[in-house]
Amino acid sequence: MLEVDKVGIHLGGRWLLRDMSLTLEAGEVVGISGDSGVGKSTLARMLAGHLAPDEGEVRYGGRPAARRGPHPAQLVLQHPERAVNPRWRIRRILAEAGAPEPSLLEALQIAPSWLDRWPLELSGGELQRVCIARALGPATRVLIADEMTAMLDALTQAGIWRAALGVAQERGLGVLAISHDEALLERICTRRLRWEELRGDATTVMMP
């Protein structure tokens, strides 16, 4: 499903991350935890195609992501209000990823009445559900959740994860969950990895 093969990315002469390897099978929920600032979010953005690796390769179902069309790995971030256009109504935000299946909206408990509202008129938890629905288009194979519920209260967090995992299981998606919350990862994951376990070479190498 997802193979990360010794990828690295550098910025301003410094490797942000290097020699990172990881595989994710369909139906797996893999949790990654590690210290702040080690590059977890950079890796997440790279896997979702927001950043290109400077070395190594990421394969989705055995081949690199196509240059055109929806990316097979979709990223959901901590702050939904920063991930949507505040001047678009919810309907248009969702349509960015193609018209959403009514069954998907129902599974994520997105009320039809939300579609005509502005992002500001939804709570953080409601808007996060919209972002997850947008990320779960028909072409999505891997959902990457980078601290997806860190800013939400426990009740909202439980509701959102149960809904997202339900859809992922039904469709056989792979889920990569990045979080500081050990208890959360323990609850949702089928497999857990420490950041160090992704690395072949643990040192930060300066470019010449």
């Binding site: 408990q109 709570s123 938890g125 409601e126 209260d153 426990a154 009740l155 909202t156 967090q157 439980a158 509701g159 994860w161 149960r162 919350d181 208890a183 959360l184 323990e186 609850r187 949702i188």
Partner: peptide
């Protein structure tokens, strides 16, 4: 009580509806 029972370590039970 619902908030307490929704914690990942305590049952992870959601509650329909929003504040």
């Amino acid at each position: 009580r619902a908030l307490w029972q929704a914690l990942p370590a305590n049952g992870f039970r959601p509650l329909p509806g929003v504040q």
